[in-house]
Amino acid sequence: MIKYLQNILNKESVSSWFFIMPSVLGSFLFIVLPVFVSFGISFLKWDLLSSPKFVGVDNYIELFSDPIFYTVLLNTLYYAFCVSVLGVILPLILAVILDRKIKGAEIFKTIYFLPFITPMVVVALVWEWIFDPYRGVLNWFLMGAKIEWLYDPNIAMAAIILVSVWKLIGYNMVLFLAGLSGIDANLSEASKIDGASELKNFFYITVPVLSPTIFFVMIITIISSFQVFDLIYLMTQGGPMNSTNVIVYWLYNNAFEYFKVGEASAIAYVLFFIILGLTALQWKIRRKWVLHE
């Protein structure tokens, strides 16, 4: 018996299956299978309790004729656009400054990175307190302004974007620092000898050489922006007047507040295709990025 077991454990083809089995089985059960089930549910009217009813593409038709869908989609696009633009430009500038080996650069890196590892709940609570219209410190800084930050439909989204960018800066900065460390120092040295200013050096050397990294960071930022949920749920619940309602928050509401899981799955699949497209683009760029290194 023991001999038999020994023999099995010595067989590469058998042992290897034991090694990969937990991961492969788990990934299949908890990731691959649900993707298909989710697609199936998007053709049903269902509340997770009573028996489901097959309705064909009705959920998709309803979705595309619902004006809220376009509000939500536009909000998400606007959010993703602003976060990815600000969340790339600011970290890029910071990375270039910190790359100079200035004193205390390491401490700055840690400080900028802290928001990224902080739980979103903590971020949301602290910023809600800062944004408080009557007792908040932000309005106090603005000389007693009475801005209603999260309660004003015209401002709420901007406030959410501000918080998101604040949370993201450190992470993107680290990615840029990694990219910068790959730049040949001779390049900028040569341009300096030729009399290029710092600014010219930035636009004509750093940005072009770093462009694959910049595109890469931009796309992963857009992808994560499309999945924003925690911040919306915690700070605005999609309001005021749907001004901060985004795809995943709307999906959550349909599924777990109204129990319309068919409609919610249709929303999930719209999100899935958007992200699939972006990911495909990212993999293409990543290949370029890796080659570049």
């Binding site: 649900p34 549910i41 999930a268 992200i275």
Partner: peptide
């Protein structure tokens, strides 16, 4: 083939799976 499949799972946004997973 299996490794490629595992890589592909990284493309799936977790929110897409949340309803079937909750049901499971």
């Amino acid at each position: 083939a299996l490794f490629f499949l595992l890589l592909v799972t990284m493309m799936v946004p977790p929110q897409v799976n949340i309803i079937p997973l909750f049901y499971l």
